[in-house]
Design a protein around this nucleic acid. Structure first.
Lengths: 144, 144
DNA sequence: CGAATATCAGTGACACTGAAATTA
DNA sequence: CTAATTTCAGTGGCACTGATATTC
C-alpha cells in the first residue's frame, strides 16, 4: 500500500510537472501573436465549431464556468479574432464565431502549438505517444 | 504527417485536461485545511527536506522563479506551517523548515492528495499506472 | 568589483462565486 | 413561475518582470 501511494503521488507530480512545462513553452511562443494560452485554446474550439458557438457550449468544452468564458471571449473579440452575434433562434444566447483575422491565424497557431509540444514529446517514440494518449484518455472524468 | 500533428495535438489537449481535473479536485479537498494547491505542494517539499531549504532551492524544485517562492513561503509562514530562520553559514540565505503545525498536517495532506487523485487514475490498472508514470517521466525537460 | 540571495512592488492570466438582466 | 443564458462586479491563486538591499 505504500507502493500504491507512491505511485499515485508520482503520477500527480509528473502530470503537473509535464503540463506546466508545456504551458510555459506555449505561452512564450504565443506572446508575439497577442494571444494567451487560454485564448488560443478557446479560438481553436470556436474555429472548429464552424457556424458559431454559444458561450455555454464553449464553457463546457473548456471545462470552466460560463462567466469565465465570457471574459475569455471578450479578449478574443477586442483583439478582433472572433465576433459575437445574437442567436436568431434563442434571444438569450449569443453565437461566437471566428472572424477573418482569427481564421488567418489558425495555421500559424497550429505550428506554434506543435513546435511548443514537440520538444516535450521528442523522447517518446510514435508507439509510446499513442500509448500515452490512450492512457490519458482513459483517466476518470468526475470525482466519484 | 497529418497523423503526427493530430497525435501531438491530442496529447497536449489530454495532458491539460487531465491535469486541470486533478488540480480542481485537489483544490476543493484542500480548502478546509486552509491550504492552496501550490502551498500544499511547497509544504511537501519543505517537509521532505528535513533540516531546512533555501528559497532558491525551493524555487528550483517547484520550477518557479525565486520571487514567487518568497510569496508562497509567506503564505505558509503566516499560517504557521513553516518557519524562516537565517542560514548560519550564509547570511544572504534564509532556511525554511516545516513547523510543528505543518508536520501535524502532513499525513492528512497525503490522504487528501491520494483521495483527490484516486478517482482520476481509477480506470487504470497498476501496470497502466506504472506505464503512464514512466512515459511522463520520459518527457523532455527543456525547450530545445 | 561581480555574483548570488532574498525581498519589495507591480502586473498578467485565469479560474471562482454571487447577483442581475433577459428570455425560453 | 422556473429554468436557462449571458453578463457585471469582485476575489483568489499563481506565475512573471524589474528594482533594491545585503552578503559572498
Amino acid at each position: 500500500m505504500n507502493t500504491k501511494r507512491d505511485l499515485i503521488d508520482g503520477l500527480s507530480d509528473e502530470l503537473m510537472r509535464t503540463f506546466r512545462r508545456l504551458r510555459r513553452s506555449e505561452r512564450k511562443e504565443l506572446t508575439p501573436f497577442g494571444l494567451t494560452f487560454g485564448q488560443a485554446r478557446a479560438l481553436r474550439l470556436i474555429a472548429r465549431s464552424g457556424g458559431g458557438m454559444r458561450i455555454g457550449e464553449l464553457a463546457t468544452a473548456l471545462e470552466i464556468v460560463p462567466r469565465s468564458a465570457t471574459t475569455m471571449v471578450d479578449g478574443l473579440e477586442n483583439a478582433g479574432f472572433v465576433a459575437r452575434r445574437p442567436d436568431p433562434d434563442d434571444r438569450r444566447s449569443v453565437l461566437v464565431s471566428c472572424a477573418r483575422p482569427g481564421f488567418d491565424l489558425l495555421d500559424r497557431l497550429a505550428d506554434v502549438r506543435r513546435n511548443s509540444a514537440e520538444w516535450l514529446f521528442a523522447p517518446l517514440s510514435p508507439e509510446e505517444r499513442r500509448e500515452l494518449l490512450r492512457l490519458l484518455q482513459a483517466t476518470g472524468k468526475e470525482p466519484s
